[in-house]
Nucleic acid binder design. Structure first.
Length: 571
RNA sequence: UGACCCGUGGUGUAAUUGGCAACACGUCUGACUCUGGAUCAGAAGAGUCCAGGUUCGAACCCUGGCGGGUCAGCCA
């Protein structure tokens, strides 16, 4: 386990990513007293997803690496979209990933007073003004990326008037949208964000934390850098779309910074995953249209969805390590995520036997009424996980598709006259296929070789080994077989098609009446298992003692299935 | 046709004063196996977007193209 952990992070000890390079340069120059403080700044308007996990691992990881700290800060400057439900889920997800923030979680709303005072300072400098024009007019005056904007007629209001108006805005004298506070920068700037950006807007809307205390709220640009400054953040790491905001980030800092300490914004490319959509808007749509079962549906790329799917925090952190950090657009293959998952689960998930689609097998030469308790190993990767007993009798279940009457070449499973090993039990031979009136196979009659018991030292080789479950003691469980939600590598990347057109109709199939070995009755919510030869599964939190539900986290790699798929395509 | 950012195997990330392009995933062989898992051994696959230039030497520096992304919310 230690070995594997080292394997996953060895790259980091050798080469630096571009952010680390810049941090070390800052350190070399003695900036900010040698401190490295970061923050993870989600807006509480949705659930966190795997893309956020990248950012979380990055920010908390950097703080750890450079012995600094990382704050969890909610960017809650827009009461129209933000809700308490989301702050709870975000805290839970960050914690679950294994990170601990410095002190209490922070909120941009904690700084509303400070921000208001700074706005006044900027007005007094003559660098901000109240604009009475409606949003549409302001938008029209902003120009386009290729044409300069034009100045507002209110741009040269006297400082005193601006001060009075701004105070009246705060006092609730005006309706939503009647006025805004704007920074006076440059309407001809080639950077749209510098064309007198809005600093404050009027919103008569209760805030999830400040209630009705405010009816004006700062914009992101006038809140983020200031919040960084208040918290002593040295490296404010965000995604690429904020790159064009950086001059504005700097401009606002220029207005307020005293002394030598100053935060700095660095942008990186967000994560894209193949066969996945990542935008909050699209994920919200899937939830609202009930295409999935909620934010934590196991098919969702949300942290809560992945958790319910059976992912481990370690696997996600290792994944984040492996994908690296850079500035160019990227699409990570889901198989890398799955690789990180299997790598972790292989080491920790106990092996159990469950038959998804049962086919009864009667072992005709096994004494009726006899039960043997056979020993089986819990995890061949980890001896310390010990052994357990599984019952064996005359009647068992095997997987339907582990039997073929007329098998193709290289079918190592059971077929008429052929032998196969039952995992941790005996070798059996199929003697007779029993069918009903419709010609469907209802059961198999086999004989076992009493000399071939597992561990008996009788090492006859047979090519195939099957998992099985004893019939009389089996418990019936429900299994959710999850597959990717989309069957297109880039569902959101088609200009003329809606991403929902690529929904995979088979992303979930529910199997009832699966046969599980009795030990599984004790399965705890979110406990991980490997169902032998099938894949990794976890107990769904909705699971009840009498009504167990398991979610398939990820199938085992399956060379045979893949080969069959290929020949299927050829035909 | 504006500004800013980015172009390295199929994918992602490296190459630390310019020095034979490396690692991971994936793919394909083979070995081993009481999980067609895991593990082990090996292979194929880029000459670094293009064209010039500087240099003994360029993925890295310069110039010019080309391609992709971002920006016109009182969203973040």
């Amino acid at each position: 386990m230690i070995d594997h952990k080292e394997k996953g992070t060895e790259k980091n000890s050798e080469s630096l990513n571009f952010i680390e390079t810049q941090i070390e340069e800052d350190l070399r120059q003695g900036k900010n007293n040698g401190k490295v403080y970061t923050r993870f700044p989600p807006e509480p308007n949705g659930y966190l997803h795997i893309g956020h996990a990248k950012s979380i691992c990055l920010n908390f990881g950097l703080a750890e690496k450079y012995h600094g700290k990382c704050n969890l800060r909610f960017d809650d400057t827009n009461p129209e979209k933000e809700e308490e439900e989301y702050v709870q889920s975000i805290k839970e997800d960050v914690r679950w990933l294994g990170f601990r923030w410095e002190g209490e979680p922070k909120f941009a709303s904690d700084y509303f007073d400070r921000l208001y005072q700074w706005a006044i300072v900027i007005i007094k400098k003559g660098k901000a003004y109240v604009d009475d024009q409606p949003a549409a007019v302001i938008a029209a005056q902003r120009g386009t990326p290729t044409e300069p904007g034009i100045k507002s007629p209110y741009r040269n209001r006297a400082v005193e008037e601006n001060l009075r108006l701004f105070e009246e805005m705060k006092a609730g004298k005006y309706k939503d949208g009647a006025k805004v506070l704007r920074a006076k920068i440059d309407m001809a700037s080639p950077n749209m964000h510098m064309r007198d950006p809005v600093m404050y807007r009027i919103m008569h809307k209760d805030h999830h934390r400040t209630g009705n205390q405010w009816c004006i709220y700062p914009m992101y640009d006038f809140a983020h850098g200031q919040s960084d400054y208040i918290e002593g953040i040295t490296h404010s790491i965000c995604t690429l779309e904020f790159e064009v905001h950086r001059p504005l980030y700097e401009w606002f800092l220029d207005q307020i910074v005293e002394g030598v300490y100053r935060p700095r914004q660095i942008e990186f490319a967000r994560l894209n995953l193949s066969y996945t959509v990542m935008s909050k808007r699209k994920l919200l749509e899937l939830v609202e249209k009930k295409i999935v079962d909620g934010w934590d549906d196991p098919r969702m790329p949300t942290i809560s969805g992945l958790r319910r799917r059976g992912f481990t925090p370690e696997s996600i952190r290792n994944f984040a390590d492996r994908i690296g950090v850079a500035k160019r657009d990227n699409v990570i293959d889901v198989s890398l995520l799955e690789h990180s998952l299997r790598e972790d689960l292989n080491l920790r998930a106990p092996r159990v036997m469950v038959v998804l689609k049962p086919l009864k097998v009667v072992i005709t030469n096994y004494p009726e009424g006899k039960t043997e308790d056979l020993e089986t190993i819990n995890n061949p990767e980890d001896e310390t996980m010990g052994i357990r007993k599984i019952p064996f009798t005359r009647e068992i279940f095997i997987e339907k598709n582990d039997f073929m009457e007329d098998p193709p070449k290289k079918f190592f499973r059971l077929s008429p006259g052929k032998e196969v090993r039952l995992k941790s039990a005996y070798i059996i031979r199929c003697d007779e296929v029993i069918k009903n009136s419709k010609g469907h196979i209802t059961e198999l009659h086999c004989t076992y070789d009493p000399e071939s018991k597992s561990g008996s030292g009788q090492n006859r080789k047979v090519k195939g080994t099957l998992h099985w479950v004893n019939a009389s003691s089996a418990i019936e469980v429900t299994v959710n077989l999850y597959d990717r939600l989309f069957n297109n590598p880039d569902p959101a990347g088609h200009k003329d098609k809606d991403f929902k057109e690529f929904l995979n109709p088979d992303s979930l199939s529910v199997l009832k009446g699966c046969k599980a070995e009795p030990s599984l009755a004790q399965a705890q919510p979110l406990e991980h298992f490997q169902f032998q030869r099938l894949g990794y599964f976890t107990a769904d939190p909705d699971s009840q003692p009498g009504n167990l539900i398991f979610n398939r986290t990820v199938p085992l790699r399956d060379i045979w299935a893949r080969a069959m798929q290929k020949t299927g395509k050829k035909n």
